[in-house]
């Protein structure tokens, strides 16, 4: 039953215009990699360009949170917006099942789009040189980060009608702006956890690419984010008055 809801949600998410916006976004790093290959001056270390320039600054900072935000807030939010929520909620289904299915769908959509972009970007920019473990490390980080973001944004969409705006403020004000001014904020930032995971898995020298948080702390924090936000989403969805949102 859970998979039925997942596949229905994926169908809804992928069959609409804003998905194309996302594909465009995911193609950007790939495009950058292509340009890099065509114009490289041979002076810079491709590993630094990929790990620091593209993967951290564009992929994890931008493409991943935006993709997760779009899928995560739409997975459940769109059912309310379109008025299709009653079809889902007037069924003999426990609410936790709906919450879990929505997170899974948002995760799969995000991980699919971002994972493909990581793979293509990494391979295009690095193949033929030293690759270390940059591509697999960022693949794993993106997939795990996608799960945490998906759970977080689905949770926001249970709580707020304007989850998209609140999520945007979290990503661009908290994770981007505040964290750059007050580095301590990184301890509450999915982006920092994701980068921490990538750092822990990649075997590149720290001079090429570094992260604020350690590996173990990052894995633990990601797991904690998933558990807390999913748990809270289930709890609040259980007592959500559908008629007030639909």
């Amino acid at each position: 039953m859970t998979w039925l809801i997942v596949s229905l949600t994926l169908r809804q998410l992928l069959g609409q215009r804003r998905t194309w916006l996302l594909v465009l976004l995911a193609l950007a790093p790939v495009l950058i990699a292509v340009i890099f290959r065509l114009t490289t001056d041979g002076v810079r270390d491709p590993r630094e360009f990929v790990a620091d320039g593209v993967m951290s600054n564009v992929m994890i900072n931008l493409v991943l949170p935006l993709a997760a935000l779009i899928f995560g807030t739409a997975a459940l939010g769109q059912e309310f917006e379109d008025g299709t929520a009653p079809y889902l909620f007037a069924k003999p289904l426990a609410r936790w099942r709906i919450a879990v299915a929505k997170v899974l769908a948002a995760w799969m959509g995000t991980a699919g789009v971002v994972g493909a972009s990581v793979l293509a970007t990494g391979v295009i920019a690095l193949v033929g040189g030293t690759m270390d473990l940059i591509v697999p490390a960022f693949m794993v980080a993106a997939v795990l980060g996608a799960l945490a973001y998906a759970a977080l944004f689905v949770c926001l969409s249970v709580l707020f009608e304007r989850a998209l705006v609140i999520g945007l403020i979290y990503v661009f004000v908290w994770e981007a702006l505040i964290t750059s001014l007050a580095p301590g904020a990184a301890y509450l930032s999915v982006r920092a956890y994701t980068l921490g995971v990538a750092r822990a898995l990649a075997d590149t020298p720290a001079t090429i690419f570094s992260a604020q948080l350690g590996g173990a702390a990052s894995f633990g924090a990601l797991a904690l984010v998933v558990l807390l936000t999913l748990g809270y989403a289930i709890r609040r969805l259980g007592s959500l008055e559908i008629a007030r949102r639909a």
């Binding site: 215009r17 804003r18 916006l21 976004l25 935006l66 779009i70 769109q78 998209l164 945007l168």
Partner: peptide, 11 residues
């Protein structure tokens, strides 16, 4: 649609 517009502008 608000969501499309918001995402479009941010992107």
């Amino acid at each position: 649609r608000r969501a499309f517009a918001t995402v479009g502008i941010i992107v």
